[in-house]
Design a protein around this nucleic acid. Structure first.
Lengths: 116, 116
DNA sequence: TATAGTGCTTTCCCAAAGGAAAGTGAAGTA
DNA sequence: TACTTCACTTTCCTTTGGGAAAGCACTATA
């Protein structure tokens, strides 16, 4: 028993990786987290710091990230009402992922340029 | 100068992260790489090792991964013709990303279960 | 009062991702 | 000869992601 199938099980790794991918999927979630963690707090600042993102997409992704408790939306009613987006402490746990992707991306770009 | 904008630039990190995301985007690419790196070589073995994947999706993603030089398709004409998928050395460079995602996914699942 | 900026929302639309199910052609097995 | 396996391919359909553009309520400023 334990071997009725002919393939090698890799679920130990595949399952948690898929859990992670589900949270940070799409083109925009990690860039937004990076921007907020860098210190951008205002909607338009975040938007301008990420080339190509539209306000619709940004609004939607900010909501998703709030639900996953990675950022929080703070309404500050000073003179005018200001809305600030801040990273939750939980966002810090993504740092290893971001660094791994950053390192790989830098290296990959180098590799592509060398070849072509 | 160097400060005409009111936002903080985070392109140093955002750009390489996006380069990486472009290569490993979607639900399936990393699971497939994990399966192949685990030692699964045959189409049906890979398919069975990843619950939920359909042959159409697997065929398409395998082609993508081949183009990115992360796996190679080997035609072995022994008695019958066999087709094998093997990891390229370049796939190893994804290990830090996979480990970071795996660790985060495991922790995230624990966090979710604690709460609810 | 008119204009501009902020933080979105709304509408419309398209393309890509992805799932279900069946089919296909070559080869191997009974 | 019939059946099965392997490695896909094909068709069809639904969902999701994402872009363009406009609008809107509110506040500030001239």
């Amino acid at each position: 028993m334990a071997n009725k199938m002919g393939y090698l099980s890799c679920l130990d790794t595949v399952k948690p990786v898929r859990d992670a991918i589900e949270v940070i999927n799409g083109k925009w979630k990690l860039p937004i987290i990076i921007s907020v963690m860098t210190g951008n707090e205002r909607f338009t600042d975040i938007q301008e710091s990420i080339p190509g993102i539209t306000p619709k997409v940004l609004a939607k992704e900010l909501k998703d990230l709030e639900q996953h408790q990675l950022i929080k939306r703070v309404v500050k009613d000073d003179y005018p009402v200001k809305i600030l987006y801040k990273p939750e402490p939980y966002a810090d746990t993504l740092t290893p992922i971001i660094n791994a992707l950053k390192g790989w991306g830098l290296n990959h770009r180098k590799k592509i340029f060398e070849k072509e």
